[in-house]
């Protein structure tokens, strides 16, 4: 199976995501954010970082990159799965591919830590590293069946402790934690494998 990792100006987690994908046997390529033809891929990753320097708002300018039109078609034609990690989650929300938005943490601080997360009933530990991870949604949005990950202890003020979401068809999946940083024992935890296993084998 083939995976593409989208690189925007300012993306900085592409290498970790690449190594994680390769570890799971995916034939992986980087693609620049002006690519629109995504037909040959099964997975599209929007990795973490600071696309367009987070100018105006995180993910705001990246939503205008040509690749986003390709991603909308990719989802529409059910070609595969789109995964947004951290800044990728922000981009997917800003593009309205997922509902809601992410704004500055309630503590006003950048949080960089390993924290406990609920993936359904299961508790795992994943690294987080963000300043704009407080998830907000309109009260009119039906969100309860879209929740993928929850913080055990709400670290950033997210509504309903939301740390990750999928869309109704489970073709788009996004999260603030960085599973790609918890794949190899050298980086302290292998719990990120739970996320990759779920994405690659179960979806």
């Amino acid at each position: 199976m083939k995976a593409a990792i989208v690189v925007f100006p300012g993306t900085n987690c592409e290498k970790d995501t690449f190594e994680a994908c390769r570890y799971f046997g995916l034939e992986t390529e980087y693609i620049w954010h002006n690519e629109t033809n995504l037909k040959k891929y099964d997975f599209i990753f929007l990795p973490g970082g600071f696309s367009y320097g987070d100018y105006i708002h995180s993910g705001r300018l990246a939503k205008f990159s040509p690749v986003m039109q390709g991603i909308k078609e990719f989802i529409c034609h059910k070609r595969g799965i789109v995964i947004g990690i951290c800044n990728g989650f922000q981009i997917l929300c800003e593009s309205k591919i997922l509902p809601g938005a992410l704004t500055i943490n309630i503590s006003n601080r950048f949080i960089c830590d390993d924290i406990p997360i609920y993936m359904g009933e299961k508790e795992i530990t994943l690294p987080v590293a963000h300043k704009e991870g407080r998830y907000i949604f309109d009260k009119s949005t039906q969100i309860s069946n879209l929740i993928f990950l929850k913080y055990k202890k709400n670290i950033n003020g997210s509504m309903l402790d939301i740390a990750g979401l999928y869309d109704r068809q489970k073709r788009v999946i996004a999260m603030m934690p960085h599973p790609e940083r918890a794949i190899f024992k050298e980086t302290g935890s292998k719990d990120g494998c739970e996320i990759f296993n779920f994405i690659i084998k179960e979806l």
Partner: peptide, 9 residues
Amino acid sequence: NVLTNPCLE
């Protein structure tokens, strides 16, 4: 479309 996200701002 650019300066705000109506959900947030």
